[in-house]
Design a protein around this nucleic acid. Structure first.
Lengths: 318, 318
DNA sequence: CCCTGATGATCATGAAAAGCGATAGCCAGA
DNA sequence: TCTGGCTATCGCTTTTCATGATCATCAGGG
């Protein structure tokens, strides 16, 4: 049993067919059959049930499958570790929440890319749950997600601390005005978005009932909807600063315990930490953040929230 | 790069010589050389520095080496997982503290062996630190150690709760009498034994100074020394129950916070949990302890230990 | 200075394994 | 019953791997 056998095994398991597996492996079907048979003979159990429409994993095969990915990852790590001469290089696959990417990442990434041009950076966005799963399974090297996250396999590091604010159309002067609105809608990123539950909780605590939420894929679309009075949303203050300055939306601050959300950087604690990752971590840590992000300024609009509303002057968050 | 290459790499790294590696691998030197060269060519870095007296790992090789064991372990786990049909079988490599083995393990092990004859049980003894290291590195499947243990890679389970007692010669009626003894010696298992620090602390708290400890490898030897008045020791109450009943030694109870020591069963939380391990865990859990161990009985002597059997009650487990 | 002994590198050769293509056998569905 | 897609198997080719002999290198000792 070696790495090649496991790759064949995985391909067959995933495709459910020795023919398709052969195609993806750029080889021929007889070859795949022979290797699977040899593997089964070696370990003494049948891994697939053969039938006319392909093959399916036996219970033994199902038990074996999860190891393939781990072994593959470990081989890749071993190779990376050997090649890693201390100067950052290679690929760095990161994940991020949409909001974090929009708000915090661009200066960090551009600075990192400038300083370490050898590193191939790739950032994908998704929900916290999705990103955490990707990191766990080795599809990502690390990810920016919303806290709290607690997984024994993950190393966590707080890198940003966002202040969430309720965002409404301009006409709304205070959150309690929302109660009067019929069919109030919430507007969120995706089903899994962590801000969504928080928004529901925030509104529920004020006795405000909402109907089914709208989902949008971009911050701009969400703000446009809010601006048009279609619904309300919950976003980091810095994200909506610009729209607020332009007077497109109203912003309502929340109590600290409702507003605070920590953005964590997570990575597997047992994976190899490459030089690129080390450098990125050093740069992402709060203490090492010199790149000034555009600080929100007080807008000139009429509906400037008053101190009585509990609104504090916008300030750089981290 | 596959499993075979890594095995060759590891053998060369460990032996520091391609010739010796070839011998241990039951092959010839030219073969080893060729495979190492091929491996180096594949990943693009030199792994060994060659010189007239053998080879030494380069920095790259040193970074690569730790992965070999992990990958090997994962292959073995994958194989075990596939073969494991739900009925316990195969090998189960356990570790234990000497005292735990003497006191608690024999009924558990004999019951397990009777119930699961297919499983090849192997128990080695050592100190907590040593056992934990062995479990971490995959040399043991699990081990009984003294709490507290906190390692992110380990799953812990409290299985026993021992009451430690101070053991002295019969003439000593109370711990404070020890202060009068010149050159008081402590008698312990080994340097790394966890009871040793505790014994020192117990005595220090009473203002008793001790000289360099004696070390012995067996409980009987320790008790014989104590009985002969050579020194004092600290052992689980149940361990010394017999010697105490026979009037060979005196037993002094301690305050609960000094006396209590939890025996944990630890195993790697990311290793494959075989059916044999599952069955063993089920049997080792406090709740599932039907096999009556020889419970310490009240002796005719003056010091009367309370008749607790040391097993934690089921509801106390988390 | 030149032996001596041990080490790794290289090469030709043979064996083993893997890959390939074609074909046979099997089964579900038309 | 036929057909299409699937796996099993076989003979053949290609590639890889293991082997033993030989060479080059280097440290230590006379």
């Amino acid at each position: 049993m070696d790495a090649g056998d496991l790759r064949v095994f995985e391909a067959v398991a995933r495709s459910g067919s020795m023919n398709r597996a052969a195609a993806t492996l750029h080889t021929v079907q007889s070859n795949v059959t022979a290797r699977i048979r040899a593997l089964e003979a070696e370990i003494g159990v049948t891994l697939f049930e053969r039938h006319a429409r392909g093959v399916t994993l036996t219970a033994a095969g199902q038990r074996m499958l999860p190891f393939v990915g781990r072994i593959t990852k470990l081989f890749a790590d071993a190779r990376s570790a050997a090649c890693d001469d201390g100067s950052p290089g290679g690929a760095l696959l990161l994940g991020s929440l949409e909001t974090t990417a929009a708000l915090r990442l661009s200066p960090l990434l551009s600075r990192f890319a400038r300083q370490h041009p050898q590193v191939r950076l790739a950032v994908s966005t998704g929900t916290t749950a999705r990103l955490v799963a990707d990191v766990i399974d080795g599809r990502l090297d690390g990810a920016f997600v919303a806290g709290p996250v607690d997984h024994p396999r993950l190393h966590r590091e707080v890198v940003f601390c966002e202040e969430l604010v309720l965002v409404t159309e301009r006409a709304i002067r205070a959150p309690r005005d929302l109660a009067a609105i019929d069919e109030l809608k919430t507007i969120v990123f995706q089903i899994g978005c962590c801000y969504r539950q928080r928004l529901d909780a925030v509104l529920a605590r004020r006795g405000i009932v909402v109907t089914r939420p709208f989902e949008f894929g971009s911050i701009e679309a969400i703000l446009a909807c809010v601006s048009a009075g279609i619904g309300v949303t919950l976003l980091p203050k810095a994200v909506v600063a610009e729209a607020w300055q332009q007077g497109r939306v109203a912003v309502h601050e929340l109590a600290p315990e409702e507003a605070a959300v920590e953005t964590l950087f997570v990575h597997r604690d047992d994976a190899y930490i490459s030089s690129a990752m080390t450098a990125f971590l050093a740069m992402a840590r709060p203490g090492a953040a010199p790149a000034a992000i555009a600080a929100p300024v007080t807008p000139a609009g009429t509906d400037r929230p008053t101190g009585r509303d509990g609104f504090r002057r916008p300030e750089a968050v981290d």
